Every structure is written in C-alpha cells, then in structure tokens.
Simulated scan of single mutants.
Amino acid sequence: MTDRPVLYVFSGLPGTGKTTLARCLSRHLGACFLRIDTIEQGLRDLCGCDVQGEGYRLAYRIAQDNLLNGVSVVADCCNPIALTRDEWNDVAERADSDRVNLEITCSDPTRHRERVESRSSDIQGLALPTWEDVLARKYDPWEGDDVIRLDTACRSIEESLDALLSAIENRP
C-alpha cells in the first residue's frame, strides 16, 4: 500500500450490512464517508427529482474532490452493475488513487430478510426497500478477482469489521 489516498467502494444488496461496515471503516481510517442513500434523498428533497443515476454521478465528483485533496473515501452504495463499478474505477484513476472494491453479502436468506424487515431509516424521508424489493433488485455478480467479498450472515459487526480490515490489509 502506498501513501496515496484510497477509494473504498462498498457493493451489495440492501440489508447485508454495507452501511454499518462502511461507517465503521470510515471511522477507523479517518476517511470521508459518502452514502448514496443520503445524496439521493437530498436530491429528492431539495430538487424534487425522480432520482435515477444522479446520486452516483454527484458522489463520483465529491469522491474525486476528496481523493485529489489527499483524503481517502469510503463509498456506501449498492453498486449493482458493471457501469457503476467502472465509473468508480475511473474516479480512482482520475484522482491517481488506490481503489478497494468490497462486496458485502448475507448468505442466510432468513437472517437477510430479518435485517431488511426490522431496520428503520436514519435518513429523514427515505423509504427503505421491502424484502420483495430486495429480491427483485437487479444486482449483477462481480466478474474477476478485483473485489474483497465478505459474508456477514454469521458474524457480529465487530467480527465483520475485523475480517474486513484483515482482508484489506492482506490483499495483493
């Protein structure tokens, strides 16, 4: 690892633990925390728009500004398709930064459903997806080995963070 700032990009379906781990990682690293849900809800509230890809495009710009300023960034997003993954990669390249792709899963469908159905929104006005929404969501599998995968199904938050930090530290 170099002294360059790092872009840590989280991916995964809602309810897998992405936001919790992204917050923990950003605190641990002292990095900027960017949450797509916050940005998208802000666009809905302030601009009244039907948000499609605008939240991601705004997040790319904010991330790049921070990286160019020497600040690492933790991006909390579903990052469900190759297009968004490629665009995050482009941000890191333009900012001459390192990049770490992180895919968070919950392999136990019962536990995953319980998480989705029991959580509450911490963003005013944000309607969280239902379990049916999660099941219907388009999410393409990652291709290649350029991603750290972490299954949170049988881990506590602390165990998940420890496993994540270890995987980041030991990546090639």
Rank of each mutant, 00 (worst) to 15 (best):
T152A: 08
A22P: 15
N170R: 14
S156F: 07
T130L: 01
R44E: 00
L21R: 15
N89E: 11
E103H: 14
C24Q: 15
G144C: 08
I62F: 06
L150G: 04
R94Y: 08
S156T: 15
V73F: 05
Q124V: 08
E54C: 03
E87H: 07
L164V: 15
S11Q: 01
P129C: 07
N89R: 15
T105N: 06
V71T: 12
D86V: 00
A95K: 07
I157N: 12
D108R: 08
N66D: 14
G144N: 12
G144I: 11
T19I: 06
S156A: 06
T20M: 12
V73Y: 03
Y56G: 01
F33Y: 15
V6F: 09
S11W: 03
T84C: 02
Y139P: 00
K138P: 01
A136Q: 09
C24I: 09
G48N: 07
D96S: 13
T16E: 01
C154D: 12
E132N: 09
H28K: 15
Y56A: 02
E158D: 15
E114F: 11
S118A: 10
R61L: 14
A163F: 02
I39V: 15
R94M: 09
P80A: 06
N66G: 10
D96R: 15
V71R: 06
L58Q: 00
V9S: 12
T152G: 13
D122E: 15
D86N: 10
G70L: 11
T130Y: 00
L43W: 08
G144H: 12
D90H: 02
L165P: 12
S156I: 02
T19D: 15
C77I: 01
Q41F: 04
T38C: 02
C32H: 07
R149K: 14
L68H: 10
R111Q: 03
G30M: 10
A22G: 15
D90C: 02
D50V: 09
I148E: 07
S118M: 01
E159V: 04
E158P: 08
C154V: 01
D108E: 07
A59I: 06
R149W: 11
R137Y: 03
I39S: 04
G53D: 03
R113A: 11
G125T: 02
N170L: 14
D76R: 09
E93L: 11
G30R: 14
K18T: 07
R44T: 09
L165K: 10
R119A: 08
K18Q: 08
I36T: 08
D146W: 13
P14L: 08
G125Y: 15
L150V: 04
C106Q: 02
S97P: 11
N69Q: 13
T2L: 13
G48P: 06
R155P: 01
L58T: 06
T19P: 13
